[in-house]
Write a protein that binds this DNA or RNA. Structure first.
Lengths: 221, 221
DNA sequence: TAGATTGTTAATCGATTAACAATC
DNA sequence: TAGATTGTTAATCGATTAACAATC
């Protein structure tokens, strides 16, 4: 349904944000919106919004704008949220537990089917209605549930061999919270990195630049 | 110390990753590295690495390369990790607790000075050696510790008024895990957004594109 | 019809890559 | 010195913005 197969990541990464804003508009009973008004609310240019959307098709009506609910649904479909991909979570430490409890997987295109860990302290604990399974069950779980995605909330050192094993078990996507860089080591595998430490250091940088340009006119966003 | 004040975010966002790779090299006893070898390990071009580093100064030696430890320290300094900015964490739910326990703030340029929440269920709980304080103490805490940064692990609805209050208390940086978009509503304020839901939906998109280009030759990274 | 707003092409801007002279 | 590799300029590539004809 896409007009072109090679859509740039810059465009893709804006889609979830459009999706959030459209959801809010929808909830507030807004029926239609023009690229101009949406651009003002989101802090973008109207041109960019129209360009982005037209990568996937003409969802608007000339002279009228976009129907909020329809556009919301289209973007959800483009993001593939209608298909629930089976995923497992590896590592039930602080971060793993938070992700398991906090994320709304079903509304983001995933179904969490199991949580696994290697530590006897956490195996058997109950998280989000699931028993934490011993890591040894990984093969069984992947086979039984056709697991396609692994969420890595494990220490860096543990990552490399686990990634190898998971790939051999037909896992082809990773939501990676570990400090290990999967991407370029494994071409063909789909990776979304969440490097929280990197994000925090970026904020540190911004603060420091701001300090230098101190009392003066400036601030970098 | 920067050669130019306006360094693009594309460059900045690569710095933490350089920092991680250099740390590993350092730990493995590697003393010097050329842009070429680093580029191969990181999956970048050597050209890009040299361009990036030269935004901040000439850290290398012609004919030799870069001294790993020195470059590591320089990048740390550029990121401002030597200055510990006082920060508070708002919201001691799953995500807030995970962030408090999991993040190595001191090595990323921050010092976590307090955790606050509005729910009687969590107020008084002990997290990382700190009692969770009632949200009403926010003014006192900000004043006493010269808090510059707030980490938002709160629901979307709670964010807007809190952000206003925090700005009036001289908080000028946000590490934002909430679904509320601070950035363009508050120019001049420094924001680093961590939209985990957006990241997850992006992964969903990649999987779906891959499904379409199925058995065939392709996969988008 | 007149007014509004899209879809799309063209112009601009920025980021990445290539090339090479400078120099350790 | 010869070889290696940087720092930096020039060329290319991609992404954003502007403009406008198409059309609801």
């Amino acid at each position: 349904m896409a007009k072109d197969d090679r859509i740039s990541m810059s465009v893709i990464r804006r889609l979830p944000r459009y999706y959030r804003f459209l959801y809010d508009l929808k909830e507030n009973g807004v029926v239609r919106i023009s690229s101009k008004e949406l651009s003002q609310r989101m802090g973008l240019t109207a041109s960019q919004i129209r360009q982005d959307l037209n990568c996937f098709g003409g969802f608007g009506q000339q002279g009228y704008g976009y129907i909020v609910e329809q556009l919301y649904n289209e973007i959800g479909r483009i993001l593939g949220l209608n298909v629930l991909t089976p995923a497992i979570l590896l590592g039930a430490g602080n971060m793993g537990r938070a992700i398991a409890n906090h994320m709304n997987f079903e509304e983001r295109g995933f179904k969490l089917v199991a949580i696994l860990d290697s530590s006897p302290n956490v195996i058997g604990q109950r998280i989000r209605g699931m028993d934490v399974l011993p890591i040894e069950k990984i093969g069984e779980v992947c086979r039984d549930h056709n697991v396609e995605v692994a969420i890595l909330c494990i220490p860096k050192e543990a990552a490399p061999p686990l990634v190898e094993q998971l790939i051999s078990l037909n896992v082809r996507g990773f939501w990676n919270f570990s400090h290990y860089d999967i991407s370029h080591n494994h071409p063909g595998v789909l990776v979304e990195n969440v490097h929280l430490g990197d994000s925090l250091m970026t904020l540190s940088y911004k603060l420091n630049v701001d300090r230098k340009n101190n009392g003066s006119l400036n601030s970098s966003t």
